[in-house]
Computed example of a mutant assay.
Amino acid sequence: MRLIPVDTTGALVMVAQEPRPKLKDRRTGEMAMDTETGAPLMTLDVTFVANGQAEILSLTVPQPGLPEGLVPGTLVALTKLIARPWENEFNGQKRTGIAFRAEAVTATMPALVGAKG
C-alpha cells in the first residue's frame, strides 16, 4: 500500500464541516475503528488552501486526535497528513480516488462566527 506524506507547510486549513463518526458499514451503522489502536475513527471535512487553489478534503482521524469544539471556520493544523491512492470495482465499474488521513488535528484559531468586517 502506497502512503504519500502531504506537506502542509504554508497551507491554510479550515474546518468545513464538524467531525462525524466514520462508518464501516452504512447499513448497520457500525463504526470504523483504527486497526492499530482500536480507537474509533472520525471523518472531518476541511478546506485546504495551498498554491492559490482551494479544495475540500475529507480526512479520517482517530477520535483521540480531535479536540473538542471543532466547528466550521476553525483554523487547524494537521499532524502527519498522508494521502493513499485507492481503487475498487463494483458492478463492472472501476472507481479510483485518494483517501486522506491525519494522526491529529489542532485548532490554531477559533472560528470567527458573526464577525463583521
Rank of each mutant, 00 (worst) to 15 (best):
V76N: 00
T106E: 15
R2Y: 14
A115M: 04
T108M: 05
L81W: 06
L66D: 11
G65R: 02
A107H: 03
K94H: 15
L12P: 07
L23E: 15
R2N: 12
T47K: 10
L3W: 10
L41P: 02
I98E: 02
A99N: 09
E68P: 02
S58G: 13
K94I: 15
G69S: 04
K24Q: 13
R95F: 07
A16I: 11
A99T: 09
L59I: 09
T8S: 03
P19E: 11
E36S: 15
T47L: 12
M31D: 13
T47F: 14
F100E: 07
A107M: 11
M14I: 15
T35R: 11
P21C: 07
T60V: 12
A104Q: 10
V46G: 01
R101H: 05
M42Y: 08
T35V: 12
G73S: 06
Q93K: 08
G69D: 14
Q93D: 04
T74Q: 00
V6H: 06
I82H: 03
W86P: 05
E103S: 09
E30Q: 14
L3Q: 09
G65K: 01
A32E: 09
L41N: 04
L66A: 14
A54R: 15
T74V: 13
K80V: 06
R84I: 01
G10E: 08
R27P: 01
G29M: 12
L44W: 04
T35H: 07
L3Y: 12
E36T: 10
P85N: 12
T9K: 14
E55M: 15
A54Y: 13
A77E: 11
G52D: 04
I82A: 02
V61L: 00
R26E: 15
P62V: 11
A39L: 08
E30N: 05
I82C: 01
A50Q: 15
D25Q: 09
A111V: 07
P5W: 03
L66W: 13
L44V: 08
I56W: 10
E89L: 00
E103W: 01
V113I: 07
P110I: 12
N91W: 01
D34A: 14
A32G: 06
I98M: 13
A102Y: 03
P72M: 05
V6W: 05
T96R: 10
W86R: 00
T60A: 09
P110E: 10
V6K: 08
G38L: 15
K116T: 10
W86D: 04
D25K: 05
Q53C: 02
E103R: 08
K22Y: 08
T35N: 06
N91R: 04
R20F: 06
F90D: 00
T47A: 14
M42V: 07
G52Q: 02
D45Y: 14
A115K: 03
T60D: 10
G73Q: 04
R84D: 05
P62N: 03
T79Y: 06
R95S: 13
P64E: 02
N91E: 13
Q93M: 03
V6T: 03
T47R: 11
Q17P: 00
V113P: 02
E68H: 11
L57F: 12
Q63D: 08
A111R: 04
K24F: 07
I82L: 04
G114A: 14
R101T: 14
V105I: 11
L66F: 15
A50W: 12
G97M: 06
A50P: 08
T60E: 15
A111I: 06
G38T: 14
T28K: 14
I82G: 00
V6M: 09
G114R: 12
D7E: 07
